[in-house]
Simulated scan of single mutants.
Amino acid sequence: MSLFWAGILVDYWVGYKKIPRLEKIKPNIDNVTLDQTTISIILAAKDEEKDVERTVLSLLAQEHIHVEIIAVNDRSSDRTPDILHRLSLDHARVKYVNIPHLPEGWLGKNHALHQGVKHASGEYYLFTDADILFEKDALAKAYGYLVQERADHVTAAPDLRADSFWLRGLISFFLFGFGYLKRPWTANQTNHKGGMGIGAFNLIRKECYESIGGHEAIRFRPDDDLELGQRVKRHGFKQRLITALDHLSVEWYPSLPAALRGFEKNAFAGLNYSVPLALVAISGVLLSQVAPFVLLFISPFEIQIISGVNILLLFCLYALTIRSLTMYSIVYVLGLPLFALLFVYMLTRALILTWIRGGIDWRGSRYSLKELKKHFKDSEED
């Protein structure tokens, strides 16, 4: 096990060094015709009255680049449509699109973004969420980097704000596990494998988006952002993943209970809707990331030494994840076994609820597991 974690640590160390930080990227703006390029920013909002106005205003404040904002109201029951409509009246660059009903065969967010594209006139699309805050130079720098790299798609990881200790722990542990499950740095390799897409920031060339089938090709994928990025790689386009912790921020979930509910839609999707794979994931976390801490106290001396080495390697991996993908204190590494148990609870809860319900509840609609599996298989084969 120690050799396994040592290999993963080397992979992490090399991999994370290949993910540029937006704050350190200095594209040659003089060679980028920012003022002649229109970027259509498309966001889908459902019951986002708390955050959507701040998000739209931060997008309108983007400097050195021309944007239009396609703000799609996805069947909201709060004040979201009123806010978006008012913003469209006050700002000529904001187009308001209202969706009162969800057609069969679509997930709500995917359908909303698909409809938003129909109103877009830009040469590039930026898909983002309705609760992201952008620094003024975020989009210009990211677009400049896309042009400089001759890329078709740039996706950026934001700062995931969280107020509670346990929520930060769950988020950081999720990112830790996501690292060795998906190896996000493969997005920056020149091949057709891997790929990455992050809902907070998916900047994509129009021709690329159309070639991979757009959101219609992933109309029933709850992991739409990730699948969009993976399709970019599978179809041979050039992709770049960056971190933008100083330029993009979002309160991913307001509380731990909200996070547990939110993970319900993605937990099974991330495991390919496979019960055996889910059981392997749960047992793997318990054996590899909880058991060493138990064995450290109850085992013979030789086993304690091995467990201590494994724990040290795990701490190094966790610290590398925290430093690379979050703004959290490195002290959170000390909570690793507790966060691992919390993650196991979250995953087990999500799987049981998905199985009992026969599907997932998302954005006010229920989708059957049978239908989700079918569309998952279809999109993977495409």
Rank of each mutant, 00 (worst) to 15 (best):
T55F: 05
Y273C: 06
V10T: 13
P103H: 09
G197L: 06
S77V: 09
V333N: 04
D30T: 05
L89N: 13
E380M: 13
E207Q: 14
Y209V: 04
L241G: 08
K265V: 14
A44W: 06
N191G: 10
F178R: 10
F127G: 15
A71S: 13
H91A: 02
I298T: 15
V333P: 08
R231F: 06
I204D: 11
Q62I: 01
G199M: 10
W106T: 05
W362P: 01
R240H: 12
Y16R: 12
V331T: 08
L203K: 04
I204M: 13
D131S: 14
W106S: 10
K370C: 02
L146G: 09
S211D: 13
S2T: 12
K370I: 06
L170Q: 08
F134W: 14
E135V: 00
D382T: 10
G359D: 11
I360M: 12
Y124I: 03
H215Y: 15
E53W: 01
V67G: 03
F376Y: 15
L59G: 08
L22I: 08
A156T: 03
R75T: 12
F315G: 02
F4G: 00
L279P: 07
Y209H: 15
F174L: 07
V294D: 08
P300C: 02
I99L: 15
G179S: 15
Y145L: 11
F178T: 02
D163K: 11
F127N: 12
L203I: 05
G229Y: 06
I198S: 07
W13I: 01
I25D: 05
T243L: 03
F176H: 13
V94E: 11
V333A: 04
E123R: 11
E381P: 02
K46P: 04
Y253N: 09
L9A: 13
V97F: 11
I65P: 03
D30L: 07
A142V: 06
M1Y: 08
L34T: 03
A217Q: 09
K193Q: 13
G284D: 05
P337G: 05
V10S: 14
W362G: 00
N310L: 08
I303R: 15
G236P: 11
P158T: 03
F220E: 13
I69F: 09
E380L: 14
R366F: 11
D246F: 00
Q230M: 15
I198T: 07
V147S: 11
N202K: 01
G358V: 06
Q239T: 04
Y209L: 13
D51T: 14
L60V: 02
A291N: 02
P27D: 07
L167W: 01
A217D: 09
V10F: 14
N202C: 13
L245Q: 12
K377G: 03
E251W: 01
A281K: 10
L296T: 05
R75P: 03
D47V: 01
A138K: 02
I311Y: 10
D152T: 01
S368A: 11
E104A: 11
V72D: 10
F173D: 07
R357L: 03
P184W: 02
F165G: 00
L3H: 06
R221L: 11
L87W: 07
E207W: 02
S249P: 00
L336W: 01
G262M: 05
Y145W: 15
G270T: 01
Y332A: 01
S40Y: 13
V147N: 08
I298S: 10
P276R: 04
D129M: 02
D224L: 08
E302W: 12
V32Y: 07
F343K: 08
E149G: 02
L203T: 07
V280W: 09
R183W: 09
